[in-house]
């Protein structure tokens, strides 16, 4: 007998016949349970996510960049010069020159940066644009080592 035998079906409610050979594993639980429509399950969980994201954004916790605050869009505080670990790829050469005891000539000479490169260029632009190999880790270690040309 086919599993899809639908003898007592009505157009509104098609039925399936459980085959005589079927021996489904019995089910047992000690808990009460309530069925949840699948789309309610999805809708509620998506709503939970949306509520938590919006809530955290309104509290200013949801910062997605070190450059701007996501909540207010304000630029974060400039480099203090206390630690080279604060240097980020989005910072410009001028940001670094302002914060650390480094001269422009020494930096340009050490990293073979073309002389006509403006100091407003960001470290990422230099690296990704193949203008000079100024990756952030090597810049940090160069400054930590005394910033010699």
């Amino acid at each position: 007998m086919s599993t899809l035998d639908t003898s007592p079906s009505t157009p509104e409610q098609p039925m399936l016949r459980i085959p005589a050979s079927a021996h489904p594993v019995p089910t047992h639980t000690k808990h009460g349970n309530r069925r949840i429509p699948a789309l309610v399950y999805v809708g509620v969980l998506l709503a939970v996510i949306a509520a938590l994201v919006v809530g955290s954004q309104s509290l200013g916790w949801f910062r997605t960049t070190g450059q701007m605050t996501a909540s207010s869009g304000e630029r974060v505080a400039p480099l203090s010069g206390a630690s080279t670990s604060d240097i980020k790829g989005w910072m410009s050469l001028q940001d670094v020159l302002d914060a650390y005891p480094v001269t422009k000539d020494a930096m340009y000479a050490h990293f073979a940066i073309p002389a006509d490169t403006p100091t407003t260029t960001t470290l990422s632009e230099l690296n990704e644009g193949a203008i000079a190999a100024v990756d952030v880790p090597s810049l940090r270690s160069w400054i930590d080592d005394g910033a010699t040309p």
Binding site: T29, K30, H31, G32, N33
Partner: peptide, 25 residues
């Protein structure tokens, strides 16, 4: 189906989706 469970004093047979009281096995 997706179900949510909650503590029940009585053992419940799972054929009874949507039950609060449960049915003795």
């Amino acid at each position: 189906a997706v179900t949510v469970t909650f503590p029940s004093r009585l053992p419940v047979h799972t054929s009874d989706f949507d039950t609060k009281e449960g049915v003795l096995l």
